[in-house]
C-alpha cells in the first residue's frame, strides 16, 4: 500500500502511468456523452408536466453532481499536499480548481435556464441554487488565492488550507442554507420531490453522469500532465523522455 502510494506520488512514475489511462478515459467520455445527449434530447419521452423543457436536466444534473464531488476531490488533493508535502498533489489541486469552477458555473447557468420555465424567473433563492452559488464562491476563493500567491509551493499550501477548511465547512454551509430556506419559503416549488422517473428517462441521465465523470478525469489528467511538464522542466527524466522523441 505504501509502496504504491510512493510510486504514484513521484511525478515521473505518475506521468508515465497516467499516459496509459488517457485513451480509456477519452473513449469512455466520447462514447457516453454523445450517447447520453442524443438519447436524452431526442429519444427520451417528454415529461407529462414540464414537456420538453425538462431535457436541460441531462446537462444540469450531471454538472451539479460533478460540481460537488470535484470540490471534494480538489480538497482531498489539497489535504494530501498538506500532510505529505507531495508536489504532485499540489499540482493536482491547482489543476482541478478551474475545471471544478467551470462545472459549477455550468450547473448554475443550466439551473437558471431550467428555472425560467419552471418558476417563471431565472433566479430564485432556492436552497440548492444558493448552496451551489456558494460552492462557486468557494472555488473562486481557492483560485484567487492560488493566483495571488504566485507559483511557489508555499502559495499552493495556503490555497490547500483554504480548500480543506472549505471542505469541512461544506456540510455546515449546506445545512444552514437549507434551514434558512425552509424558514423563508414554503416548500411549494421544491425540486427534490420528483415523481419516479421511467427508465427511458433516467438511463440517458446515468450515461451522462458517468460520461461527465470520465470527461472530468480526462481533462484533469491532461491538465495535470501539462502542469508536471512545466514544473519538472528542469529535471532529467522529462528531458530524456522528450529528447528521445525529437
Amino acid at each position: 500500500m505504501w509502496r504504491w502510494f510512493h510510486e504514484w506520488g513521484s511525478p515521473r512514475y505518475f506521468y508515465a502511468r497516467s499516459g496509459r489511462l488517457l485513451p480509456y478515459l477519452a473513449g469512455l467520455t466520447l462514447l457516453l456523452i454523445p450517447t447520453g445527449i442524443v438519447w436524452g434530447l431526442l429519444y427520451a419521452p417528454a415529461d407529462y408536466q414540464q414537456g420538453h423543457s425538462y431535457r436541460i436536466m441531462y446537462v444540469h444534473v450531471p454538472a451539479a453532481i460533478l460540481a460537488q464531488s470535484s470540490y471534494a476531490m480538489m480538497a482531498a488533493a489539497g489535504m494530501v499536499s498538506l500532510i505529505w508535502r507531495l508536489k504532485l498533489a499540489d499540482a493536482a489541486m491547482q489543476t482541478a480548481a478551474p475545471i471544478g469552477a467551470w462545472v459549477t458555473a455550468i450547473a448554475l447557468i443550466t439551473g437558471a435556464l431550467w428555472g425560467k420555465p419552471m418558476w417563471g424567473t431565472y433566479w430564485v433563492w432556492d436552497a440548492r441554487l444558493t448552496s451551489t452559488l456558494i460552492l462557486l464562491f468557494l472555488f473562486a476563493g481557492v483560485l484567487a488565492l492560488r493566483q495571488a500567491a504566485g507559483p511557489s509551493q508555499s502559495g499552493g499550501r495556503a490555497a490547500a488550507v483554504l480548500a480543506v477548511v472549505g471542505l469541512i465547512n461544506l456540510p455546515i454551509i449546506k445545512f444552514s442554507v437549507d434551514w434558512w430556506f425552509t424558514l423563508h419559503q414554503p416548500a411549494s416549488f421544491s425540486v427534490t420531490e420528483k415523481p419516479a422517473m421511467p427508465i427511458e428517462m433516467w438511463a440517458p441521465l446515468l450515461a451522462m453522469v458517468i460520461g461527465v465523470y470520465g470527461w472530468f478525469f480526462w481533462v484533469w489528467l491532461l491538465r495535470l500532465r501539462q502542469e508536471i511538464r512545466e514544473r519538472e522542466v528542469r529535471s532529467e527524466w522529462i528531458r530524456q523522455r522528450y529528447q528521445n522523441e525529437f
Binding site: I134, L135, F137, L138, G141, A144, L145, V165, I173, S176
Partner: peptide, 8 residues
C-alpha cells in the same frame, strides 16, 4: 472572495 462562503 475567500471569506464570503464561510461567513454564510
Amino acid at each position: 472572495v475567500i471569506l464570503m462562503p464561510f461567513l454564510v
